[in-house]
Nucleic acid binder design. Structure first.
Lengths: 255, 255
DNA sequence: GGAACGCATTGATTTACATCAATCCATCGG
DNA sequence: CCGATGGATTGATGTAAATCAATGCGTTCC
């Protein structure tokens, strides 16, 4: 899950008016995710096509905005905040299949219905594209399709790594892998260097649902890592990586 | 993993000569996978472009043909047989991330190296496309990109289902899900109806590596299912589903 | 300001599956 | 034809993680 700088914008959903003058406030122009997201393939001359298609939406923490099984009418580009993607069983068991941060494109569906759910972990901003408008953009901008294929391929690789983790790794290997992934994500372009300090807005329960563990196992493992001098657990959701090398050895899987 | 009818062809790899007459034996023309695979977007008038790009390859059982970490120089379209896709840990632990049957397109890579390995379960035929030739085809046939995006989206959905299975399902739920998936795959277009009888060329070890279990657990679970009247375990690799309804209840996850 | 709630940590106990072991069966090669 | 090998099944035992429980802390709301 790559991590991108967020798009700053006003705090309520609204439709950008299709304007004929160039004076309108155009959040696409000022969006800081755009240089590295799927939107980057649409050039400055065509940016109004983007603005016309996109509806910026603010989603408060805890609110779901994609429901597994619901008709797949929209696509979403995450421009700020963190989203958890998940699948659920009827008895309440849940597997988080990924955390989406700015730059992630959500909503690819094969059938007519979403195969997964999405819920805001913290305050989230997304640009929403209806399926029709997306189809128009794809027709007019072939490079967009190439870019979506790249995104999908990225997700496939991440999914395969996660299957290896879920199917074969021990609890300590899983937590180590998770922390290292979060560290790498926070070091991608657009993130200010923060000396190994991770901001993890998701709860221990969310981390457990992502790693195929329970809350207690995640907590015990983090406590053990702290006792081994690998991490520091700070206030709120801050975890600081003290020895990435030790975590690397764990995550690599040499049991 | 969708399952498609296989492409019949001669039993050794060779380059199809770029011919000017229409008399040459053209395996693309006779390929029975082609109507439903990514190649379907290339029309009969352009089929020579396909033949020019493809190299048919026969791979014996047990032979690997994609090595995790190796340079990603080729793509592969599976036209016959079964392929296992996997990721490995240094200490020998291995997770099979999928079984690819005819119609599957392999080799999408984001970086310059393959993120997974591939190995033939039984005798496998693939059409191999070099990266350069694939790029040419993509430039000339934009619908090919759309089709690849559809394939990738299919794989993403399958991966998410598998993450739910690996992260949250019990052993019985996993085996039930696997058997039902194989049943559905065998009922796709191109497969003759075979009354619930599955042909599973992969070993119990392969099934275990796919479901995040051990050989013994898979074997015990199949034995229990036989004792419950859900399946019959026949000679060789044949498993017959006797009560899909009971397996459905298990697989659904209502523990 | 205090009760309620959500979240996290830690302890004790249980359990689903792994591990180790033995045996059987089918196939292959000499 | 027989020994070797690969694969599968079944039994006995061990264990990593789950489950159950208790406690503490920070935040929110009345």
């Amino acid at each position: 899950m790559s991590d991108m700088p967020s798009c700053q914008f006003e705090s309520r959903p609204r439709r950008i008016v299709i304007g004929s003058s160039g004076v309108q406030t155009d959040f696409c122009t000022t969006c800081s995710v755009r240089p590295t997201s799927v939107c980057s393939v649409i050039g400055p001359d065509d940016i109004s096509r983007l603005s016309d298609a996109a509806v910026e939406t603010i989603i408060p923490p805890g609110r779901g905005f994609i429901e597994e099984g619901a008709p797949a009418t929209d696509f979403f580009n995450v421009t700020s905040g963190t989203v958890k993607l998940f699948k659920a069983l009827p008895d309440g068991r849940r597997q988080i299949t990924g955390f989406a941060s700015p730059g992630h494109f959500l909503g690819l569906a094969v059938s007519d219905n979403y195969a997964f759910g999405a819920e805001a972990v913290d305050t989230v901003r997304v640009c929403r594209f209806s399926r029709d408008k997306m189809a128009d953009l794809l027709d007019d901008f072939p490079k967009l399709e190439r870019r979506l294929l790249e995104e999908a391929s990225n997700e496939l690789v991440a999914a395969q790594n996660q299957m290896l983790l879920l199917g074969r790794k021990t609890a300590r290997e899983r937590v180590a892998s998770f922390l290292l992934d979060q560290m790498h994500a926070s070091q991608l372009p657009g993130h200010e260097s923060n000396g190994g300090r991770l901001h993890l807005p998701m709860t221990r329960g969310d981390i457990a649902d992502y790693l195929g563990l329970t809350i207690e196992t995640v907590s015990r493992t983090l406590s053990w890592m702290r006792s081994q001098g690998m991490i520091e657990v700070g206030k709120g959701y801050a975890i600081t990586i003290v020895s990435a090398a030790k975590l690397d050895v764990l995550a690599a899987g040499n049991t």
